[in-house]
C-alpha cells in the first residue's frame, strides 16, 4: 500500500542484493571443480589469441608426456579442426562448437563432460575460444588459467588486454624459436606482464623445437600433484545423476613418484588396483 496517502497503490521498495551477475555461472563452475577434484583430475583453462599456438602447445605436450593420460575439449566457433588435430596427436578430444559465443562458460564445459571419459585423465585441457577478452571472466571450474602469448603478437599485448593477463596463473610465451627472425624484445614482454600481473609466472617455449617444454611439463606435474587425490570421494553428494562407473587405474608412469597427494604420512597405494577404489556411483 502507498505509504504517503494510504490509497492502496503499490509501493516502491529497494531490494539490496550485492550479488555477482555471473553467480549462476560461478555455481556451475564450482560444481565442475568439485567433480575434477574428487576425481583427481587437473583441469586447466587454456586461453589466448586466435593463432597464439594453443593447439600446437597441446600437441607438443602429448609428445613430451607420452605416459600421462591427457584429454581435451576444444572450443571453436565453427569447426572441430582443433579437436581433430589433438585426437591425431594422441590426446582424446572433443570439440565444443560455440556458434556465435565468443567464450566458454561453465555450463558448456559441464555438458561436454557427459560423454567424455574425463575421469580417466591426469590432465584435462579446456582449450578456450581464441580470444583475449571474453573468456577471462567466465570461471569454468579449472584449477588454473594458462594464457598462451606468442612472440609474434607484439610486446604490449598484456597492456592492451590487462583483464586476461591479470587472471593468468601462468603465461606461456610461445613460438620462441622465431625470436631470431623477429624484432621482438623478450624483456619488453616480461616488463608489460609485470605491469598487469602482481606476481607473473612466465615460461618461454617453442612447441616446434621443444625448447622450454621441460619446464612446462614440470609445472604440469607440480600442479597435478596439488590436486587432491580425492579417491574415494566419500563426502560428495551428487546434485544430479551421472553415469559414473569405472575403476581408477592410478597415475601413469610419468607422474609416478612425483606426486604429492597431500595424504600426510600414511601409506598410500598408488596402484589403485586394490580394494576400496572401485567406487561406482
Amino acid at each position: 500500500m502507498c505509504t504517503t496517502c494510504g490509497c492502496g497503490d503499490s509501493e516502491l521498495v529497494p531490494v539490496e542484493l550485492h550479488e555477482k551477475i555471473l553467480a549462476g555461472n560461478d555455481r556451475a563452475a564450482a560444481h565442475n571443480r568439485e567433480h575434477f577434484r574428487e576425481s583427481g583430475v587437473l583441469a586447466l583453462n587454456i586461453m589466448g589469441s586466435p593463432g597464439s599456438g594453443k593447439t600446437a602447445l597441446l600437441e607438443a605436450t602429448a609428445r613430451v608426456m607420452k605416459g600421462a593420460r591427457l584429454g581435451a575439449v576444444s572450443a571453436d566457433l565453427a569447426t572441430d579442426n582443433d579437436a581433430r588435430r589433438l585426437q591425431k596427436a594422441g590426446i582424446p578430444s572433443k570439440a565444443i562448437t560455440t556458434g556465435q559465443a565468443c567464450h566458454l562458460d561453465a555450463e558448456l564445459v559441464h555438458r561436454s563432460l557427459h560423454d567424455f571419459p574425463w575421469r580417466e585423465l591426469d590432465v584435462f585441457f579446456i582449450e578456450n575460444v581464441g580470444n583475449l577478452v571474453c573468456p577471462a571472466i567466465y570461471d569454468l571450474g579449472q584449477e588454473a588459467n594458462v594464457v598462451v602469448l606468442s612472440v609474434t603478437e607484439g610486446e604490449d599485448k598484456p597492456l592492451k588486454y590487462p583483464v586476461m593477463f591479470q587472471k593468468a596463473d601462468l603465461v606461456l610465451v610461445t613460438k620462441c624459436d622465431l625470436v631470431p627472425h623477429l624484432d621482438v624484445n623478450m624483456g619488453e614482454i616480461e616488463d608489460a606482464l609485470s605491469r598487469v600481473m602482481p606476481d607473473p609466472k612466465i615460461l618461454k617455449l617453442s612447441a616446434r623445437t621443444g625448447e622450454g617444454m621441460d619446464a612446462w611439463r614440470a609445472w604440469l606435474e607440480t600442479m597435478r600433484g596439488r590436486v587432491p587425490d580425492g579417491r574415494p570421494a566419500e563426502s560428495h553428494v551428487h546434485a544430479h545423476e551421472h553415469e559414473h562407473e569405472h575403476e581408477h587405474t592410478g597415475a601413469l608412469p610419468s607422474f609416478e613418484g612425483e606426486r604429492d597427494h597431500g595424504h600426510g604420512d600414511h601409506n598410500h597405494d598408488h596402484g589403485h588396483g586394490g580394494s576400496g577404489h572401485d567406487h561406482s556411483r
Binding site: S10, V15, E16, L17, E19, K20
Partner: peptide, 14 residues
Amino acid sequence: SDALLLESIDMEVP
C-alpha cells in the same frame, strides 16, 4: 576492481 555485481533493484510491490 573486477566487480560485476547486481547491487540493488527498485521494484513496485502491491
